[in-house]
Each structure stands twice: as structure tokens, then as C-alpha cells.
Design a protein around this nucleic acid. Structure first.
Lengths: 135, 135
DNA sequence: TCCTTTCACTTGCAATAAGCAAGTGACAAT
DNA sequence: ATTGTCACTTGCTTATTGCAAGTGAAAGGA
């Protein structure tokens, strides 16, 4: 992932993308958000079993890098929900092609949920649509 | 990347794809091969500066996982060239979308070479085309 | 012949990151 | 008063990365 601002290892756009999401867990979190999950414990309960300290640090990095944002959904003990930004949602085509790739080349892989391949990044921005509706 | 056979952390096809290429360097090597590079020193000379021991281990893993294969191109001291398999070449659409993503969302990223977005996985299988011609 | 280079690695070691288990603090429910 | 949930953090061990240096086979030149 990206660490600090504007110090990429090269100007290659592929290499830059990998500094944002080139690790074992970031796209798993993005996937979960594409599937409608939004809370910390949702991500924790995914079958891959991300360690909790790594989940916390990835969420922080993804937020710092503008791929998602968090918003409190209750006060009394303050609790947060996470949402994809347009920048984060635009990774959906990448996920779709990775899924296609596995289905073509790896035996025994599971099926994505119905409608996964038809989804578009805009469909993932429910939070932002609500914002737009407020205007 | 994948470590041993058939022990994925989950059956999710996205998660499985990440066990093959979900790290900082594997797709950089695949990118180089898409751009026509084929020798160890070509990969080493890429601007990202992959450490040589990591390059060697990634090439070994990618070969074990069937994304590429190596073939000697000379004997006296035996030297190898690396080629994408169809399985490896089929990652091209993933690379293309990652590049698009960076161009849309990150300022100051470089341009891919001309024709990059129009290329298709089949175009990358020059070695295999030659094999087919032999038949 | 000896010296230098190149290529494709390997080895040793320090630094960084990942992974596991346990703990924390705010509150809600029993 | 005790237990439980949520969203984390802390401590510690293990694994991976990254840097520098070394290796061995051969080619090329002085």
C-alpha cells in the first residue's frame, strides 16, 4: 500500500495502483464493501479471517488514501460504518476480472453472488446517492 | 501468493486470485512480461528496483503456479528466458483496469506504452504461437 | 595467462510486517 | 454485579522483505 504522499517507487500507473492495493488484504476489504458489508465486525467475520490488528491498520490506510471513509452510525459508544468512495468503488472492474480469472484457471473456486458481474461502481455508492438526494 | 496445492484461505474466487498475485511484486513481473521483457536482468532493471532474491523467489512461485514458464535460450552457461502461459497472460485485463484506475484517480502517473489498452491476452503468447506453427 | 565483466542467481543478516492472543473502554442487557 | 458486544489496541513471536555481498560458469580483452 501507499505509505506517504507522492513518493511512489516509479511513475508506472500499474506500480502506483499496487502501492494502494498490492497486498493480501486490501482488496478483500474492498470486496466485502462491494458486497454490502460496512462494519468492522462484518469484515472480521469474513471467511478469510483477517487478524484484527491488520484489519484496523488497513482500514486506516485505505481511508488515508481516499478509497473509503468512515462515519459514526451511533454515539453513546461511538461506532463507525465504512463506505467506499468513488475512488474505492472504481476498483470493482478489477475485482470482476480477478474473479473471472480464477473461475477460468482455478478448479474448485466458489461462485460470486448473483449480479456480481453486472454491477457497476456507481451502484456501490449508496451513501453518496443519499447525499445527492439531500441536495 | 499461493503456497501449497489446494489450501486456499477461502473458496472466494477473489481471495484465491490474491493468493496467486496479491503482493507487491508479482504483477510488476507480469507487467514486464506483457511489455516484452523475458530475461532475469530485464526484470531487475525495471525502475521499481525489485530486490534480486525476491525476484528469484517470485519467478519460482509464478512458475510453480503455472503463470509463466522458463526455457533455456543458451547452453554454455545455461541461461533462461521466461514466458507467460495463457494463465498468466489472462491477467492482462486486470492490469489494464488497474492502469485505468490510477490514471483516473492519481495525479502525476505516467502513461502506458501505445497500444497497451488495445492488447489482448492472446497477443502475449508469441512463444505459444510458434509452438502452434510447428504443428 | 590473467584480469575483468556479465548473467542468473544464492546467502547472510537486519529491518519490517504479519499473525496470534489477550486486553481495553464504553455501553447494553440480564 | 456480571456478562456480553463492538471496535479497537498492545505485546510478543514468527515470517517476509530488503540490502549487500558472494558464487560459479563462461566470454572478452591485455
Amino acid at each position: 500500500m501507499k505509505t506517504d504522499t507522492q513518493t511512489y517507487r516509479s511513475q508506472c500507473p500499474l506500480s502506483i495502483a499496487l502501492e494502494y492495493i498490492g497486498d493480501k488484504w486490501s482488496l478483500i476489504i474492498i470486496r466485502d464493501m462491494c458486497l454490502g458489508k460496512s462494519r468492522y465486525c462484518d469484515f472480521q467475520n469474513s471467511p478469510e479471517g483477517i487478524p484484527t490488528n491488520i484489519l484496523a491498520s488497513r482500514l486506516r490506510e485505505l481511508e488515508e488514501n481516499g478509497l473509503l471513509l468512515k462515519r459514526p452510525y451511533q454515539d453513546k459508544p461511538v461506532r463507525y460504518e465504512y463506505f467506499l468512495t468513488p475512488k474505492g468503488a472504481d476498483l470493482l472492474p478489477v475485482l470482476q476480472h480477478l474473479v473471472r480469472w480464477t473461475q477460468k484457471h482455478v478448479d474448485g473456486a466458489g461462485e460470486p453472488p448473483a449480479g456480481f458481474f453486472e454491477a457497476k461502481p456507481e451502484d456501490l455508492l449508496t451513501m453518496w446517492e443519499n447525499e445527492a438526494q439531500k441536495q
